[in-house]
Amino acid sequence: MNTVARVLIVGIPLLSILAGSAIGYGFGYSDWVTYRQLFRQQTDGAAEGGPGGVPFSHAHHVKGLGIDCRYCHATVEQSPFAGMPSTNTCMTCHSQMWIHAPMLAPVRQSWLTNTPLKWTRVHDLPDYVYFDHSIHIAKGVGCSTCHGDVSEMPLMRRVVDLQMRWCLDCHRDPAKHLRPQDQIFNPSWVEPPDQLQRGHALLQQYHIQVDQLTNCSLCHR
């Protein structure tokens, strides 16, 4: 009896702590916490004075119209920051088409009043992480590896949790995700069955030093 009681006295709290920790740990990486898959209003409606923001559809612009990523995210090959389109960029087309569409009212408002649009950042890294788009593009990491297939997204959402372990997963073994340069901006690229083999060849081709990719100072400085 004593033994059972002792085991229970120690065991029940221990087990509940373990179980609690496991649940808590899992919860910490779950979509409830990371807000993965969450749809967000695209621009700040209030700032534009309208009832809602612009419901920008990547599906329409990328899949429907076939516009290249770099038409709007113009600095993605040169800068840490991929770049967001200026109102001018929107107006290159929308001064000619859909010129009376109510959902584009904030864009026209911005154009007329010379007030920038305010877009909600969907992929928001902590401020102590210094991510550089240009080097990822140059080294064979395509847009959709991190941003998902935006050509299927009527509204933008995040498909990865952006936790550090997710970054490290690739930084420890990039071969899993590398693709040839002509596929970088293909949002619907799928890994071929022999990806690992091709990836290792690409590692060589892109001169990627894997040992250096897990230095803390690579991203934190």
Binding site: M84, S86, T87, S110, W111, N114, P116, K118, T120, R121
Partner: peptide, 9 residues
């Protein structure tokens, strides 16, 4: 939530 504010021009 963070905002990105691009240029108008």
């Amino acid at each position: 939530p963070e905002k990105i504010v691009p240029y108008v021009n």
